[in-house]
Design a binder for these strands. Structure first.
Lengths: 340, 340
DNA sequence: TTGTAGGCGTTATCAG
DNA sequence: CTGATAACGCCTACAA
């Protein structure tokens, strides 16, 4: 008769059966009292609730996930946590999912498809019931992982090909729209400042190019592209580069508001009048953009809405429903302010 | 003979024993090949690795957590995801923990102790191996939950009482230091603008008061406190209030940089010269503060370091080691720029 | 170096 | 409405 030592298990953690023993019922009934109270008599339920409170019972999600094959968690992968664009996305996601009992596992891909793949690999071990991704720039291996797992996926921020689910907006159209705005204001030598150069930035650039070409005023000299992460500092620095590379430029479309803020600050510092000497436009409408001097013309994108709508769509998919439509275009709006 | 239907389980998900069957060994050996490769012969390991790749095996964390009583996850609770102060904290935490195989479960308390308690309750179900909290402002019930769970906790941002583990800085001292800086510059009617009014803001205020009292120039008329969440907009608005409530004020210490940016923008707009007409100081040294016009004097706080050091301390606690010291004061530094 | 036995805490299934 | 039973996939303990 081997004298086995007790198994590990968490010391002092109360289990369903301990509650059951205390009340004089079975574990399954306690489980039901928690998850489907209407199936348990009121009397028993009251005793169970009391025992739960008294003993400080905390359900064990791992056991539940194992037994039910549902983790009630969702993996959310965003490019960066230090960009409020994506944290606002997360707020929308969280508000919708948390209310339905789902936990959100956040992953920060640092704008890298490789990092995204490795995060995906890591998070798949948790058997998320759903996955939210930013954009469509996945590696083949990542797509393969997802396909094999059969876990529903919704993409955020951009719109994608048929067969995919997505909530976002046409970054190309938005880039086109703000460039058209500059053209309508009379600017002709319109530069583009791009940092990070993630897919969305390149899509905005392509919208910008399309507008300029259509207007017959392409301005390739004014394109400054730098893969460095976007920041106010790099924006300020890019203004320098722009002035030497394209001194006759009369307006600049910055691929995002951070860059634009850097440009605005640097203009102030150098006494360049905005918009008289140089018009400045941004993208995203960050909170600060309504307060800078001058206030910044930009494209407002409904991040919170994208997050919440994507989560809502994912909820449907997780319930094996078919969301309609599969692609939600939340659009964007041009916010014309003082800087143009 | 009851004809039982198959249990749920995830369709198509490969398990350890399927790998084992494929290779002609046992599940436990496959488990070892994954978790302790040195215990398995090279030959067998190669076959196992091949089978894993071929069948696309993904470990099941729930099963592992259940069997091992360790979830390899850490709950991290921060007041807000939309404040880069806390997302930088998260970066430090993540970098340290992820490298050690831990997953980070992020919770956003919205600056509420009640929300924090409820998040804690939710996250405890996942049996995190450790917990990281922001500040010491927990509800009694939350403290009770943590104590019962016996899960190690490290607090971030502030320093706490003996018996607790923390990595942070004295917010009181920092508030004192920047006020002293203003006093040394010759300012005497020094106002304090505070929003959100979370514990750290109140600690900064108390440092500010201490400095003013010590210098014999208290200035209660200049204290403007508003529980509204901090933002650039509320900063701009508070400048208005300040000018009417304390028109003779010559310097203002804003409880954080967001507020200070709002004040700076509003000063520009109104033609108030900074620092000649009004000196402005902030707190945290956000990225933008080095670029505003004028650049902002502020207190730099090492957020990434706080996060990484707290995670490192927690790692020790999770290994049942005793971190020394139990409280790490990372300090702060005064960054004197143009605005004062 | 490998394998056997058993159980971690919960839920699905079916029987009362 | 309640309960007995058998998994879920993996790991600890022990044995060989």
């Amino acid at each position: 008769m081997p004298n086995r030592k007790p198994r590990p298990s968490q010391p002092g953690r109360v289990t369903l059966s301990e509650i059951a023993a205390r009340v004089g019922t079975s574990a399954i009934t306690v489980s039901r009292a928690i998850n489907a109270p209407h199936l348990v008599s009121e009397e028993l339920r009251a005793q169970i609730d009391a025992a739960i409170a008294e003993l400080g019972y905390v359900p064990n999600r791992a056991a539940r996930a194992l037994a039910s094959a549902r983790s009630e968690s969702v993996a959310v992968l965003i490019p960066s946590l230090s960009n409020t664009v994506f944290t606002e996305l997360l707020s929308g996601v969280r508000d919708v999912l948390y209310a339905e009992g789902y936990r959100t596992m956040i992953g920060d891909t640092r704008y890298g498809a490789g990092e995204e793949e490795s995060l995906l690999r890591a998070y798949l071990e948790h058997s998320p019931d759903g996955i939210l991704l930013t954009g469509f720039d996945q590696t083949d291996a990542a797509r393969e992982l997802i396909a094999r797992s059969r876990i529903p996926v919704v993409h955020m921020m951009e719109l994608g090909p048929p067969g995919s689910y997505a909530v976002g907006l046409s970054q190309v159209d938005a880039g086109y729209a703000i460039t058209m705005h500059l053209l309508e204001r009379g600017y002709r030598r319109i530069a583009f400042l791009g940092a990070q150069l993630d897919p969305r930035v390149m899509q905005r650039l392509s919208g910008c190019r399309a507008a300029l070409t259509q207007a017959g005023v392409p301005y390739p000299a004014g394109e400054i592209l730098d893969p460095t992460p976007s920041s106010i500092g790099i924006g300020a620095q890019m203004l320098e580069r722009l002035r030497s590379q394209a001194p006759d430029c009369d307006a600049v479309f910055c691929c995002n508001d951070d860059l634009a803020h850097g440009v605005l600050f640097e203009c102030q510092r150098q006494g360049i009048r905005v918009p008289q000497d140089l018009a400045v436009a941004g993208f995203n409408d960050l909170a600060a953009s309504a307060w800078t001097c001058p206030t910044l013309t930009t494209i407002a994108t409904p991040r919170y809405l994208i997050g919440s709508a994507a989560a809502t769509m994912l909820l449907k998919l997780m319930r094996s429903e078919t969301p309609e439509p599969a692609q939600i275009d939340v659009g964007f709006s041009l916010v014309a302010r003082e800087s143009t």
